[in-house]
């Protein structure tokens, strides 16, 4: 919180004739990127290593947390609510100042890059909430996904429409009018539009019906089979572990268990605490 904010408190924030009630962004968009460093020998495709940090001046949420994804694999992060899963994703995406640790992608150290430049470096991110542009049409949402591309995006858009046919049907409709499942599909589609070399999904199945959830899982697996590495946070731990090549259990911002999906599913403690027996 800034000084001015402390001085003014909540004053004046009800008056819609002077202040726009739309929530502000949470990321400082004016931050410049620092230099890109060399990666390390034997790194996975993406690794956020030993990350510690929190929001603004607040306490650390992440404590020496490490998350990695190998090429062509699916990694999932599970854990209780408030464990810091979303925070870890944001940290990897540069939306949060890390106090310690580094993020390396494809042989480069990108810790100092701002989120915009991480998009350019090939990362695609679907946040947990507010992951579409509600007043823009589906097609425009996808176009915005491809904002950094200078080439023809028609092919990619056709691929996304193939993957999520409902989006093609609704392409002229405002995204805010879509159902929950359709929104999530659009959000994933938007992230795919940059043709990223890594896709990060934060709870893509949150708030959708079981049928739609299965469908979404199928699509995500299909995307991964296409060779795109995926890092995903998932509430439905069982289903997530079943498809995970690598799984991380986060508790209070720290790695509690790490292993392949199968290993963790067979781990008694993990089963008891997170998979409901």
């Amino acid at each position: 919180m800034s000084d001015a904010e402390k001085a003014f408190g909540k004053r004046g924030n009800r008056d819609a004739s002077v202040v726009n009630p739309r929530p502000a962004g949470t990321v400082d968009g004016s931050r410049r990127s620092g230099p890109v460093g060399p990666g390390r020998e034997g790194d996975p495709f993406l690794i956020g290593e030993g990350m510690s940090g929190g929001y603004g001046r607040g306490p650390d949420i992440l404590h020496d947390c490490t998350i990695a994804v190998e090429k062509g694999q699916i990694a999932v992060i599970v854990g209780p609510n408030g464990a810091g899963k979303s925070t870890a994703m944001k940290a990897i995406f540069g939306m949060l100042d890390l106090r310690k640790g580094s993020v390396r992608l494809d042989g480069r150290d990108i810790t100092a890059l701002n989120p915009q430049d991480r998009v350019k470096a090939g990362m695609g991110f679907v946040p947990q909430v507010n992951n579409i542009f509600p007043s823009m049409s589906c097609e425009e949402n996808l176009e915005m996904g491809a904002f950094i591309r200078k080439d023809d995006i028609a092919d990619t858009m056709a691929q996304v429409y193939d993957l999520f046919p409902i989006l093609k049907e609704k392409r002229r409709q405002a995204a805010g009018e879509l159902s929950g499942g359709q929104r999530q599909q659009l959000a994933v589609g938007r992230a795919l539009m940059t043709r990223p070399s890594l896709l990060m999904l934060d709870e893509p199945t949150a708030g959708v019906s079981p049928i739609v959830m299965d469908e979404l899982f199928d699509r995500i697996i299909a995307i991964a089979r296409g060779g795109l590495p995926i890092l995903m946070v998932e509430q439905n731990a069982k289903q997530a572990m079943a498809i995970a090549d690598k799984a991380y259990v986060l508790v209070q911002g720290a790695n509690a268990h790490t292993g392949s999906g199968k290993e963790l599913m067979n781990n008694d403690e993990v089963r008891r605490t997170f998979l409901g027996g």
């Binding site: 009800r14 008056d15 819609a16 004739s17 002077v18 009630p21």
Partner: peptide
Amino acid sequence: RSDYLAIA
């Protein structure tokens, strides 16, 4: 529904 005091 929300204040419009400033303009008023």
